[in-house]
Amino acid sequence: MTPNKPWLANYPTGVPKTIDPDKYSSIMELYEECFDRFRMQPMTICMGVTHTYDDVDKASLAVAAWLQAQGLPLGSVVALMMPNVPQYLPTMIGILRAGYICTPVNPLYTGRELRHQLNDSGAQVIFVVDNFAQALEQVIEETHIKRIVLSKMGDMMGLKGILVNTIIRQVKRLIPKYNLNDPKYGVTKFPDMLKKGKNLPFQNPKLSLDQTAFLQYTGGTTGLSKGAILSQRNIVAGAMQSEAWTRPITSEINEVYINMVMALPLYHIFAFMLSSLGMRAGYTFILIPNPRDIPGFVKTLSKQPFHIFPAVNTLFKGLLDNPNFKNLDFSSLRISQAGGMAATEQT
């Protein structure tokens, strides 16, 4: 043990002292390894609809091919403004796969906040769910956005998605009115983009760990939100570190698939890094599009075992205040992880 690293003596059994992100040539090599290893395993479950690693692989290829056909130079920035829906991860991976930089956007941003991130990042394309299209419409003229891919919540949920979209629009009325029909906005519907992308050629770009993968914006609590530049090596190293620390615990799970509750928003760095860790280990993500709906969240948790449960303190507290939460079956739970803020002793 090196004398200037005394903390290594306190590492739990089974956790390696170091990792080597340079075993991968790019972030896509890591993702493609995950797709090959876990191809037919479930990768996401959302509102009862399951997508395998193979489904996500193919959808991300379609996204990548469509993006390349837009003629964007390598290294262009693409914004992703979605909650935790099945199309999030294929879109994110497709952006990276095409050789572009992803900037995840908080869907709850006001027009002012959205304008700042789009202009500061230089994003030229945005993928957005129609629940949040009104905010985009307010600022689109003041940005560099050349293409919009407009998605509905249920676009990757098959027949169930038609019902989901109808309830969201007609019953719950969760979609503020917007008008982005002008051809100058270059709007493509998400299903049309996928259909076109599947029939377009894909060119594997030359990627490296030194290239920028993400412009991850801070919360803006001390002023304007700032774009942290994350290289592909940053993401690969984070995924390998996280997996190294959880492996001694998850290796003891005897159930067929390891389920991770994904209620934290994927646009946030905490949840995104958990998704990279989970992919590397072949987890299934239980996607929660709206964690603020605590009764609905608890109902979702009652439908399948869950092994890893990351959240922030306010979300844990909200669940603890729900009378049905204590009735859930916690027998499969192995890891609870709090982050983003201090977890109170009471929680």
Rank of each mutant, 00 (worst) to 15 (best):
G75V: 09
L180A: 10
I335E: 04
M47D: 13
I294N: 08
G161Q: 02
Y24K: 05
V85P: 00
I95W: 04
Y109F: 15
P83K: 13
V15S: 05
T18K: 15
R147H: 15
F297N: 02
Q241F: 13
I101G: 03
G154H: 00
R334S: 01
K172H: 09
L209C: 05
N327E: 13
N204Y: 05
V85R: 05
G220S: 07
I253W: 05
G75L: 09
P289N: 07
Y267H: 15
Q211K: 14
V128L: 15
K58C: 10
L74V: 10
R173F: 04
T143S: 11
T218N: 10
S231N: 06
G339Y: 05
V49N: 04
I27T: 12
G220H: 00
E243A: 15
A342W: 02
S231L: 09
I286R: 11
M40K: 14
L277S: 09
A62C: 10
D120N: 14
K17W: 06
W7A: 08
M40F: 06
F190C: 07
E255P: 00
G99M: 10
F306D: 02
D54A: 14
L320P: 02
K189I: 01
T284A: 06
L150C: 06
N234V: 03
D182K: 13
V15A: 09
K326T: 03
F330P: 03
H116R: 11
N254Q: 14
M157C: 12
P83Y: 03
Q346F: 11
M82E: 05
Y267P: 00
M157E: 02
L266A: 06
G197Y: 00
P265F: 02
C34E: 05
T110H: 05
A244C: 09
K23L: 11
I126M: 02
K5H: 12
D210Q: 15
V261M: 08
N4M: 10
S275I: 05
M153C: 08
A239P: 00
I140P: 00
